[in-house]
Simulated scan of single mutants.
Amino acid sequence: METTIAEVADGIFRLSTYLPQIAAPAGFTMNQFLLVADEPMLFHLGHRELFPLVAPAVARLLPVERLRWLAFGHVEADECGSMNQWLAAAPHAEVAHGAVGCMVSLNDMADRPPRPLADGEVLDLGGKRVRHLDTPHVPHNWESRVLYEETTGTLLCGDLFTHLGNGPPVVSDDLREQAMIAEEAFLATSLGPHTVSTLHRLAELEPRTLAVMHGSSFSGDGGGALRGLADAYQGRLDAMAAV
């Protein structure tokens, strides 16, 4: 295995590790995103076993000890299993997450106290500005959230648009069909009363880049892509209601 690096937006780098054994034969990517700024942020931290691959990839872009912020979408091993390894490697770094995630998990799990963020709160990284947006249960987990990087129009969208395979770092093709194929395989999305409205709320940001944790990132009409994903889930909800 190796971790590859690609710039998906100005100063935002995708660190991607392809795992062919997951969902074989297509395989699956685990992606972290490094935001290069005065106060650098790593979004998604990865499994503990991937730390020896991802840390050297970060070091090719900046010294690991310079990391100031560690963040992720929700509390799962693929997003934060290596959290305390990063905290040890970057002595000035803080975990930044939503208030719910800090309350129910991270105050206990993190080796240093995390920074809780309110819905809509912005962290000024110096050259980058990230806005925290609570998205409870979208795509899953109570503490789920996304970050929107305002200067590049990049939505760090976590598990949204998850798809299989090891495609290019960035595509302009509609990801909805591939995302729904992955949904059939994993049944990972919590379909509830707020799923569709949450996606429409994110679409109002009109992001230019969708930084996807599993699969290729997307460049183009991010608002349209999110509305299309909302329509796909609305169709599933309608089908469930008709049964």
Rank of each mutant, 00 (worst) to 15 (best):
A26E: 11
L34Y: 07
L35E: 03
A37C: 12
A37F: 04
E39I: 14
P40N: 10
F43D: 06
H44D: 13
L45S: 05
L50N: 08
L53M: 12
V54M: 08
A55H: 05
A55R: 09
A55I: 07
A55E: 09
P56Q: 13
A57V: 04
V58S: 01
A59V: 05
A59W: 05
R60G: 09
L61Y: 10
L61N: 06
P63A: 04
V64I: 11
E65H: 14
R66F: 07
L67V: 11
R68V: 01
W69H: 05
W69G: 05
L70M: 10
L70F: 08
L70V: 08
G73N: 03
E79F: 12
C80T: 00
C80V: 08
G81T: 02
W86H: 03
L87S: 07
L87C: 12
A88R: 13
A90W: 00
A90T: 06
A90D: 05
A90M: 09
P91T: 07
H92F: 12
E94L: 08
E94I: 04
V95E: 03
H97E: 08
G98I: 04
A99W: 00
A99N: 00
V100H: 12
C102T: 00
C102E: 00
M103Y: 15
M103P: 02
M103D: 13
V104S: 04
S105H: 15
L106F: 14
L106I: 07
N107K: 14
M109I: 09
A110G: 01
A110M: 05
A110S: 14
R112A: 07
R112K: 10
R112V: 06
P113S: 12
P113L: 11
P114A: 06
P114T: 00
P114M: 01
P116A: 05
P116G: 04
L117M: 12
A118C: 08
A118Y: 02
G120Y: 02
E121M: 10
V122P: 04
L123A: 02
L123H: 03
V130Y: 03
R131K: 11
H132V: 05
H132R: 03
L133A: 02
T135G: 04
P136K: 06
H137A: 02
V138L: 13
N141C: 15
N141K: 14
W142L: 15
E143W: 04
E143S: 06
E143T: 08
E143A: 09
R145D: 06
L147S: 01
L147H: 08
Y148C: 05
E149G: 14
E150M: 15
T151A: 14
T152M: 04
G153C: 09
L156M: 11
L156D: 06
L160A: 04
F161Y: 11
L164E: 10
G165P: 07
G165F: 11
N166K: 01
N166M: 03
G167H: 07
